[in-house]
């Protein structure tokens, strides 16, 4: 089992490296926010700790972990989307610039 997990780890890290090294520097902040959101996957472990009724300590630690992970997931995906929404191409901007830059007042 451990060996299998090591395989998964190495292959996933390799895939991650290949995919993420192609992210342009333009989107590095959204990338950090996105990986933060994805790191909320520790919720999976937290849920089991909080809900498996092993002992009081595990339940309470699990509960705090659920709160942390959930807020990362919710906050992370929302803020990534908010950021990505702002990135847009030029076309509408030049139109607006031309409209707002009133004809260079009669010289």
């Amino acid at each position: 089992m451990l060996l299998l997990e090591l395989y998964v780890f190495v292959l996933a890290a390799f895939t991650g490296y290949l995919v993420i090294s192609r992210v342009p520097s333009l989107l590095h902040t959204p990338l950090m926010a996105a990986t933060n959101a994805i790191s909320g996957i520790s919720l999976v472990g937290s849920l089991i700790a909080a809900g498996s009724q092993q002992n009081r300590v595990a339940t309470i630690l699990g509960f705090i972990a659920v709160v942390c992970a959930t807020s990362n997931i919710v906050g992370g995906f929302l803020i990534t989307d908010r950021m990505l929404k702002m990135f847009r191409r030029d076309v509408p901007a030049t139109k607006r610039a031309r409209a707002s830059a009133a004809p260079p007042a009669a010289h």
Binding site: S46, L47, A50, G51, S52, Q53, T59, G62, F63, I64, A65, V66, V67, C68, A69, T70, S71, N72, I73, V74, G75, G76, F77, L78, I79, R82
Partner: peptide, 20 residues
């Protein structure tokens, strides 16, 4: 047991929404 989980999820959303 889902009680602590439910509480944690709700609290997490309450904290996460403003942070996002």
């Amino acid at each position: 047991d889902y009680r602590w989980i439910a509480a944690g999820l709700v609290l997490g959303v309450v904290i996460g929404y403003p942070m996002g």
